[in-house]
Design a protein around this nucleic acid. Structure first.
Lengths: 222, 222
DNA sequence: TACATCCTTACGGGAAACCGTAAAACAGTA
DNA sequence: TACTGTTTTACGGTTTCCCGTAAGGATGTA
């Protein structure tokens, strides 16, 4: 089993249970960080000391409080860690259940397993850790296997996300076109953007832009 | 200390820790429900057996899954329980931190304490339970005391919430006016509604309706 | 090169939002 | 009743959205 494991999780109510689960799996060194920045520091320190971590278990969303942090989400944390220690195994333990988000975790960040927090998640987490240790990859908690089969969201690309983000900030079509031009994103004609928004409205069955953003917010796309 | 306590919490990763905390407080009977419906049944059963619960610790949001449920949130659960056992003490343990929501929990549902899940929430939860047992009421976890002082959201009334809800469903002004007329909500002139939306836009510093709904979604108002 | 196809952009008309102003309805007070 | 102030409603002009059509441009193929 893994020897040295780092848990990045802000809620004490959850990290305590995760630590217990790791003990039951006979992990000898279990460390814990409540902030992404702290987690990153621990990883770097361990590399420097030539005693790197074998496994990272990370949440995705961290509460913001008075503290100023450089890394503010599990996504950012994992991306940063992969740069300094590309071979570290990673298990994400989060409430997020949008296929779009999870897919990008595997594809863009190269995580090894994803376990959704839920009614029976601790046994699943244990199983996932065991699986990653046995060099299985792309492990997904039971209830999510069907979610990823759902193709509905895969077709939404980063372009659409950028578009929805700007819309939700209150920009009008022309302003979005200008923003895209400045960012080098194409297509950036206001007419094309209009067309793309229309596609999204049809896709999500939205009556108008307001409705569209409400749906996008519900799906966690923006 | 309380003798018989029910914990309504869907995540196993959290309920385990909460149960441990209750043990440390010397609670003799600790029961647990993963679904609101189950929690409600246990409460009713206990009343029937003349062995009612002393305290309810409840989450607010519950994951939806394959199961069909009548009660789908902590709000609904508490409201239902208060009808059959008005004197039960209630502690809400949730991630929700919007002052608007928490205020209504105290005022409309008559809960006794609110503890926000966070980096140091288990000690706070213990303290809150102790406080409720000593007949203190309106207990709020530390980090939230300032949040409720923030008056910014108190002025938003149910009228505004209804309005934002309909907007987020993609209805246009005239449709909203019609809906309000049918529901007996006043004012319901499309002009008045327009004015009210404008006030909300100023209040939330929104550029347009799309922006407004994005903000409302972020604040958890709709 | 010629043709077909797809993607991007342009344009125009009608609907809805946006914004200010003013009239009408209502409540409180003398 | 008359006066005052507030709330609700009505109206008009401008901007933006919405939606269809069509022109321009790039790519692939015979």
């Amino acid at each position: 089993m893994f020897k040295k494991v780092l848990v990045a999780e802000d809620f004490d109510s959850i990290s305590i249970t995760v630590a217990q689960a790791l003990e039951e799996l006979s992990v000898s060194e279990i460390h814990h960080a409540k902030y992404c920045d702290d987690a990153f520091l621990k990883i770097k320190k361990a590399i420097k000391d030539n005693l790197p971590y074998d496994l990272l278990i990370s949440d995705l969303s961290f509460k913001t409080d008075h503290r100023e942090n450089k890394l503010n989400s599990g996504d950012e944390l994992i991306a940063a860690i992969k740069k300094v220690q590309p071979d570290i195994k990673t298990v994400v333990f989060s409430i997020e259940d949008k296929s779009f988000r999870i897919k990008s975790l595997f594809n863009d960040l190269g995580i090894n397993a994803y376990v959704a927090k839920g009614r029976n998640s601790i046994p699943e987490l244990k199983k996932a850790i065991q699986g990653v240790f046995n060099n299985n990859t792309k492990i997904l908690s039971q209830e999510l296997t069907h979610a990823l089969r759902d193709k509905s969201l895969i077709e939404i690309e980063t372009y659409d996300i950028s578009l929805l983000k700007l819309l939700s900030k209150g920009l009008i079509l022309d302003e979005i076109a200008l923003d895209f031009k400045n960012s080098g994103i194409i297509p950036n004609g206001s007419s094309s953007i209009e067309k793309r928004i229309n596609k999204l409205k049809i896709f999500f069955k939205a009556n108008n832009n307001v409705h569209l953003i409400a749906i996008a917010k519900d799906l966690g796309l923006v």
